[in-house]
Design a protein around this nucleic acid. Structure first.
Length: 1043
RNA sequence: GCGGGCGUGGCGAAAUUGGUAGACGUACCAGACUUAGGAUCUGGCGCCGUGAGGCAUGGGGGUUCGAGUCCCUCCGCCCGCACCA
């Protein structure tokens, strides 16, 4: 009976399916456990070996928890709205849904292959109307709520309307737009419907607004901040610009403090928490209004975290985009300011970042008045002040802030010390909060702790400022000018947005002829025919044409799994009260600030509405590392190297080192002195293309100046010379005798590119090569198999015409796995060759789950061998399944129970790699004991079932059981069996290992000491010294201190 | 610059509270069996040394009977944020 993984795996996979083995009920007498994977976006490329890593770990956990007696929810679904399907639709005209379903089917096949214990009856797809109906429903709740600061939670907007009608908004403490004006009850009641609705938008948690957005012209859509990296789109790398557009926005800033505080309550990695804190970017300080000299009624508001340094403010800086710049600029300074504003606007994001040390700015000619001491301070503009943060203006304190110091030094502005502890203000600013204030009016002599509240009180009393907390976090743009997303359940009437009726949900995506913007520049939904909202008043209105961003559907999907078929609610209260929150969430750290922050935001909101039981949706988060690919490369020579290579190839056979021409390595550091140095005593041969005739003249002169004769060979001729080297050799011989110059015509076929392997390039400049990815399947033992390589379009066979020795050595590097890098390893291939159990165990064996590591197929044989040997323990000499029912020996039980203990402990602390090691050790030891006892092997089958469910299920049934091994009783470690009669004590002398002594387990310290001192190796080491101390750490170690 | 993480054989990595550093696996070497199989089994495998022994967890220092683990310091790598007032 051979171990034949494929057959038995297929058999059990269909058995599980037929028996609904993985179906989970929403009620149980057992405790619940919810383990969730980040659901995938089903891309056209399918899964690679990196994707299942987290799923395997979670599956092991899920199966383990089930064996341990939990009712385990372990679902899977698809984040199926998204850009790639839409791009594909634009190119092919195929509806994104069709491509998406195809991709999902492929994903499902691949996932099924690996033997996961997902309850597929709970599958969710975000693009399914039955699902996005509830995404739209949550959107409607957000529209209908505002954030009340007194209650510190979201409340229905209807309550606000009632309040306005009775009291106006003066005493309302709610999160709203900054410029929302105050109004009385009668003012409110006298407003038109339009005015009222307009006002309410300033309070709603989702609202349309004109705002600067990251507009990506190439993709025709708006991107969120985290979808933009270094001024280009994260996907595709297209340029992104700032553009003013009407967009739906989510008032996530209302939850900034709670999102920050909530991080304390979750067991997530420090790195993720820190990234979220960074993103929220809370800073506590004060806002201060500065009057402007000569401009009645004009104030510049600044935000500062160091209001205590206000007496040191010697100038003020506005961002070049600040609204007041043109108002304040004097006629005299106008030209300079306009110049600077234009220059700053033209600078790209990248330039601005790379030149942060350069100090630039311009003086407006205006002066601000320091409210504390009435000092007049000049107002500058400079691009080190960002328009997008705070108020876009700062009070500059060169003594306390390095950037202000740099500016003051460059523009010769005064630097006033403000603390008796400040030092060396000539060389740098001193931002410390030490000492007591000087030159500081009302806070002179105070410490930092005393000064801040004193100043804030003063500012508030005098109406020129207040304590304020500022966030980096912006409201989240919630519109995409795209087709393949959830329609926003809103129609427009009189330029105001209104929700459609709840019973009209879902608002289904309409059909369109093309997936591109309309001719008038509207989003693709503008193409839908007869797509109008029929309101209760009998009128038709325009629907909102933008769709929701990718993060909408993924911000609440974990609740849908609890009650996936519900058409009355996004999830029933019974279900959510049973499953509560996610106990363990597994996924990549790349979602640190996107998905994980938005989901927390929506969850806090749903919590405020009383719809979910906890503020945080996932108690524990584990971030699996990436499995990287090994990319193989060959190098394509650039033209320069090409010439040199040909030269070598053609000329070296005819001119040895002893001959008239000496071969010299080209010197790339002295570029263009002699472009190629086949140099003899007084002859330089230059190889060049005809196009570079001016270069030739230069080189000729340079050679003549050195007293050398020059021969020019054209690459075009060298090409011919490959087949007919004698001709060139002959000409060179002649050139040695005469002073002839060779000029030969053009004619290199473009396609004849030269590829070289990395081993050859080490002696040449890397600039001479272009690196190209090679399909790993065409690489065998680091050598490129030319036959296989030819199937890659970029490697025409002709390209290898001039490869030395007819083979190419490939270099390899570790990179992210990606189709475009030709380094993808498909799990299907691994499963086909080694089986799902082996694949699962090997992925775990690779290393700790959180660590990124390169895939290496070579090592998988070790795990495969283990499984075969594990199988073989159940098979007798005749090749038949056969286990002994004899009682297990103490040794055998010790091995078994050690394994139970280690594996159980390690699963609990998520150390799957060491679990696999323990299984191997256990097998090795049982083999040594020649154990085939059922009493030992049966518990092992249960123990290994989470890791290798198929082989476990097969053996479980062969052992005579009828139900699934998934429902077996988890073996319990009996510590009794771990005890041994004797202990091997390591013996150290002065901390150095000298040997081991076997000592009876219960021996007293005195007995131990006597026994140890007898040992020969101890005696030998004690010669000439005396024992100062004898340390016994029971069960662990003995250390003898000598002197 | 700020924040987070990390540094152990040829390679992936073990070492749970300080207690035999390198488990387990790969790769490699030798042997056995077959004899060409990429099969199986046995042994070896951090470095130096024939050996006893010495040296080894990025470098240096400290605490300790004892340090990969704790503290200080320097170096290097990775990730995140980045003129955030």
């Amino acid at each position: 009976m051979e171990y034949n993984p494929r057959d038995l795996e297929k058999k059990w996979q269909s058995w599980w399916q037929a028996n609904n083995t993985y179906k989970v009920e929403n009620q149980s007498s057992r405790p619940k456990y919810y383990i969730l994977d980040m659901f995938p976006y089903p891309s056209g490329a399918g899964l690679h070996v990196g994707h299942p890593l987290g799923y395997i770990a979670s599956d092991i956990m899920a199966r383990y928890k089930r064996l341990k007696g939990f009712n385990v929810l372990h679902p899977m679904g698809y984040d199926s709205f998204g850009l790639p399907a839409e791009q594909y639709a634009i190119q092919t005209g195929i509806h994104p849904e069709v491509a998406t379903v195809q991709n999902i089917n492929r994903y499902r096949e691949q996932l099924d292959n690996i033997g996961f214990s997902f309850d597929w009856s709970r599958e969710v797809r975000t693009s399914n109307p039955a699902y996005y109906r509830w995404t739209q429903w949550i959107f409607m709740q957000l529209f209908n709520h505002y954030y009340d600061l007194k209650a510190d939670k979201s409340l229905p907007i209807s309550g606000l309307v009632e309040y306005f009608a009775q009291h106006g908004n003066k005493d309302v403490k709610a999160v709203c737009d900054d410029e929302t004006p105050h109004f009385t009850a009668s003012e409110w009641n006298n407003m038109t419907e339009k005015e009222q609705q307009h006002t309410l938008l300033k309070y709603r948690l989702t609202f349309p607004e004109e705002s600067y957005v990251n507009w990506c012209p190439a993709m025709g859509t708006v991107l969120s901040n985290d979808e933009v990296k270094d001024g280009v789109s994260e996907r595709g790398g297209y340029p992104v610009e700032r553009k003013l557009m009407k967009q739906w926005s989510m008032r996530i800033t209302a939850y900034a403090d709670r999102l920050l505080a909530g991080l304390e309550d979750v067991d997530w990695s420090d790195s993720i928490k820190e990234q979220q804190r960074n993103w929220i970017g809370r800073s506590v300080g004060a806002s201060v209004k500065f009057a402007v000299d000569g401009h009645e009624g004009v104030h510049i508001e600044v935000f500062t975290t160091r209001v205590d340094t206000i007496y040191g403010a010697t100038f003020m800086v506005l961002a070049p985009e600040h609204d007041l710049v043109s108002t304040l600029t004097t006629d005299q300074q106008k030209a300079e300011i306009e110049n600077y504003v234009r220059w700053a606007a033209a600078r790209s994001e990248v330039e601005r970042m790379s030149e942060t040390k350069k100090v630039t700015g311009a003086f407006t000619g205006a002066y601000a008045v320091n409210p504390l001491n009435q000092a007049l301070i000049p107002i500058y503009i400079a691009d080190y002040v960002l328009a997008g943060y705070g108020t876009g203006a700062v009070m500059a304190v060169p003594s306390g802030d390095q950037r202000d110091w740099n500016f003051a030094t460059a523009y010769k502005l005064p630097i006033i010390p403000i603390s008796d502890a400040q030092q060396n203000l000539d060389t740098a600013a001193d931002a410390s909060k030490e000492g007591r204030y000087i030159n500081s009016g009302i806070i002179n002599g105070m410490t930092y702790q005393e000064a801040v509240p004193a100043l804030i009180a003063w500012l508030e009393q005098n109406g020129v400022g207040k304590g304020k907390t500022q966030y980096k976090l912006r409201n989240a743009v919630f519109s995409r000018q795209r087709y393949w997303g959830e329609p926003v359940p809103v129609y427009w009437k009189d330029e105001l947005p209104y929700l459609i009726e709840e019973h009209e949900l879902p608002l289904v995506l309409p059909a369109v002829d093309k997936y591109l913007p309309t001719e008038t520049g509207e989003p693709p939904l503008g193409r839908a025919e007869n797509w109008k909202y029929k309101a209760a008043d009998g009128q038709s209105y325009e629907y909102e044409l933008s769709t929701m961003p990718g993060w909408a559907g993924s911000s609440w999907y974990f609740y849908r799994y609890m009650d996936a078929q519900n058409d009355q609610a996004f999830c029933s209260q019974e279900a959510v009260n049973y499953w509560q929150t996610v106990d363990l969430y597994i996924g990549g750290s790349e979602h640190a600030v996107g998905h994980l922050l938005y989901s927390r935001f929506w969850n806090h909101f749903l919590f405020d509405l009383g719809l979910v039981p906890a503020r945080e949706f996932a108690r524990k988060l584990v971030n699996q590392g990436m499995i990287q690919g090994r990319s193989s490369f060959v190098y394509r020579a650039k033209e320069r190297f090409f010439e040199e290579y040909l030269m070598m190839k053609v000329l070296t056979p005819f001119f040895s080192e002893e001959g008239p021409i000496k071969v010299v390595e080209p010197n790339f550091e002295e570029e263009y002195k002699y472009d190629f140095a086949f140099a003899s005593n007084n002859l330089v041969i230059e190889v060049t293309s005809r196009k570079q005739s001016d270069k030739i003249v230069r080189i000729l002169r340079s050679a003549e100046a050195d007293g050398k004769r020059l021969m020019v060979l054209y690459t075009e001729e060298l090409m011919d010379a490959i087949n007919n080297p004698e001709i060139i050799a002959d000409r060179i011989r002649k050139a040695l005798d005469s002073k002839d110059l060779f000029i030969i015509s053009d004619g290199i076929p473009k396609s004849e590119q030269l590829y070289v392997s990395f081993t050859q390039i080490s002696k040449y400049s890397p600039d001479s090569f272009t690196k190209l990815h090679v399909d790993i399947s065409a690489v065998e033992d680091d050598v490129l198999n030319l036959e296989k390589a030819v199937k890659i379009p970029q490697f025409e066979k002709a390209s290898f015409k001039y490869c030395p020795e007819g083979k190419i050595w490939c270099s390899s590097e570790v990179e992210k796995m990606s189709k475009s890098k030709y380094n993808v390893v498909n799990p299907d291939d691994m499963v086909a060759q080694y089986g799902a159990d082996c694949f699962r165990m090997y992925e775990m064996f690779l290393g700790p789950i959180e660590v990124s590591k390169p895939w290496d197929t070579k090592g998988i044989t070790g795990v495969y061998d283990f499984l075969r040997k594990f199988w073989a323990m159940f098979i007798n000499d005749q090749g038949v399944f056969d286990t002994s029912s004899d009682e297990a020996t103490r040794d055998e039980l010790r091995v078994l129970h050690t394994c139970i203990k280690k594996v159980t402990d390690d699963i609990e602390r998520f150390s799957m790699n060491t679990c696999v090691s323990h299984f191997m050790i256990c097998r090795n030891e049982l083999k040594r004991l020649n154990c085939n006892k059922k009493a030992v092997l049966e518990p092992l089958v249960i123990l290994i079932a989470p890791f290798a469910p198929h082989i476990a299920e097969e053996l479980w049934h062969l052992l005579g059981n009828t139900g699934s091994v998934c429902d077996a009783a988890y073996p319990v470690c009996n510590e009794e069996f771990l005890k041994t009669d004797t202990i091997q004590y390591p013996v150290q002398i002065n901390g150095k290992m000298r040997g081991t002594v076997e000592i009876a387990a219960g021996a007293s310290n005195a007995d131990i000491e006597a026994l140890v001192m007898e040992q020969a190796f101890v005696q030998r080491n004690l010669e000439g010294v005396s024992v100062k101390k004898f340390i016994v750490v029971p069960g662990r170690i003995i250390n003898i201190v000598v002197g």
